[in-house]
Design a protein around this nucleic acid. Structure first.
Length: 391
RNA sequence: GGGCAGGUACCCUAGUGGCCAACGGGGUCUGACUGUAAAUCAGAUGGCUCAGCCUUCGGAGGUUCGAAUCCUCCCCUGCCCA
């Protein structure tokens, strides 16, 4: 991928591009800053967009400085959120950071990464330092941040501590001497604060590198509450299924932002799809293969596809399913709960009444039914939950 | 410190003495349909020993035959005044 593509494909905004190009051409090893919030240890496919960017620049010889936001995590990033968060205890933060980094280094080159904890510098911050930092920004500046303004105007709680978040993140740039800081477009305010602070303190201001926010599988904002994310830790089969459940109109965007498929080829796909000459399903299958190959390997992608075709297209049984030992006759409701197919007996009854429970592909409609086994059987709930019963 | 408005199920919201396990939306689940775990449509969505019972409407008490709804105190949030 050439420099021009690195700086345009999957890039929302660079402040300023000229300045960054100059730095890149200077021959210096640049310090690429990226922070993360260890209160949310799971990376999803949205983060992947930015990580790939970082990796691409890393491959040009630059150093990544990964900042563990163990102090800002206790505040909670106010960006794009409308309520404050309760503080986390240090052990949780530490454990989360571990989990996060495991995933982070599946994409980013560990050998060219410097990991720094905010506590290195904020641990010995004094009130004098806080004065020095806070005196440089005004309330008006903070209220220019859309999230703060919105919460204030809507009469929602907004603590002074939260106002500090952008300042702490800005100070990180001073502490690690950042040349470029990465983030999603929702990070613009915070990253710019860092740039400004550097300038105020007579340092060379960092460049702001913003990657677009990837939309969720259903085209809405990607969010846990909508359950429209793909987690980096999702197993291949899960990823495959999730990609197949994606709305047709986001397919191309995913190709551009999350794969290395050449742009020319992607444009061709878009044309073919618009003209109705290609089934979007097949493009999604390709996307699933690409992504799983990148995150796992080609073999995992092949297996996941095989499984998907088997279970969902041909409606056959999955090749592997959890087993449950049933030695003596048992009421179906109890069985569903014990086998983990229903969360409560009430739910089990509901599932039966709605016709969602099948034993060897035969619907069980009687909640009083007793299941006895002489040979293995498959108990199924809905389309995708299976348990193999063995005597 | 004073005044006003709020805190309802996973989330948002309606409910201001019995018809309330609580309207509606989101989410989730199931069914139908399909190119798919898409879209669309329909239903369900506290628990249980299930025509009944138990637990739930910020917390603790109280009034009442009966409380999410009334009273008292407390905790939390926003606004206005100081």
């Amino acid at each position: 991928m050439d420099l021009e593509e690195i700086l345009t494909r999957g890039v929302a905004e660079i402040i300023t591009k000229e300045e960054l190009l100059e730095k890149l051409r200077s021959g210096r090893t640049l310090r690429l800053k990226m922070g993360f919030d260890p209160s949310k240890p799971n990376l999803h496919i949205g983060h992947y967009v930015g990580l790939r960017k970082i990796r691409q620049l890393q491959d040009l010889g630059h150093t990544v400085v990964l900042i563990v936001g163990d102090w800002t995590a206790q505040i909670g990033d106010p960006s794009g959120r409308d309520e404050s968060r309760t503080m986390l205890d240090p052990e949780t933060v530490r454990a989360n950071a571990e989990t996060y980094m495991q995933q982070f280094f599946r994409v980013v080159d560990r050998s060219r990464t410097e990991v720094r904890w905010q506590s290195e510098w904020f641990g010995k911050f004094t009130l004098a330092d806080v004065f020095n930092l806070t005196s440089r920004f005004t309330l008006g500046q903070m209220m220019a941040h859309e999230t703060f303004r919105k919460r204030y105007e809507q009469g929602l709680p907004l603590s002074l501590m939260e106002l500090l978040y952008p300042l702490l993140q800005a100070y990180d740039s001073i502490a690690v001497d950042a040349d470029v800081e990465f983030g999603g477009t929702d990070q613009k305010f915070n990253i710019l604060a860092g740039r400004e602070l550097q300038r105020m303190l007579g340092k060379e201001p960092q460049n702001v590198f913003l990657v677009p926010l990837l939309v969720g599988l259903d085209g809405r904002k990607m969010s846990k509450t909508f359950n429209n994310t793909i987690d980096l830790v999702d197993p291949p089969e899960e990823m495959y299924g999730k990609i197949m459940s994606m709305g047709d109109d986001v397919i191309i965007e995913y190709f551009i932002l999350t794969t290395d498929v050449p742009m020319a080829e992607i444009e061709e796909m878009e044309r073919e799809m618009k003209a109705g000459r290609v089934n979007p399903r097949d493009l999604k299958m390709r996307l699933a293969r690409e992504l799983i190959t990148q995150l796992y390997d080609a073999e995992a992608a092949r297996k996941a596809e095989e499984e998907f075709v088997r279970v969902f297209q041909r409606r056959e049984l999955p090749s592997e399913m959890p087993q449950f030992r049933l030695t003596e006759p048992k009421n179906i409701v109890d069985l569903l709960v014990e086998a983990g197919l229903a969360a409560s007996k009430s739910e089990a009854r509901r599932l039966i009444q709605q016709g969602g429970v099948k034993l060897n592909e035969e619907v069980i409609s009687d909640i009083e039914a007793t299941i006895a086994l002489t040979e293995p059987a498959v108990l199924r709930v809905g389309k995708r939950r299976f348990v193999q019963l063995v005597p």
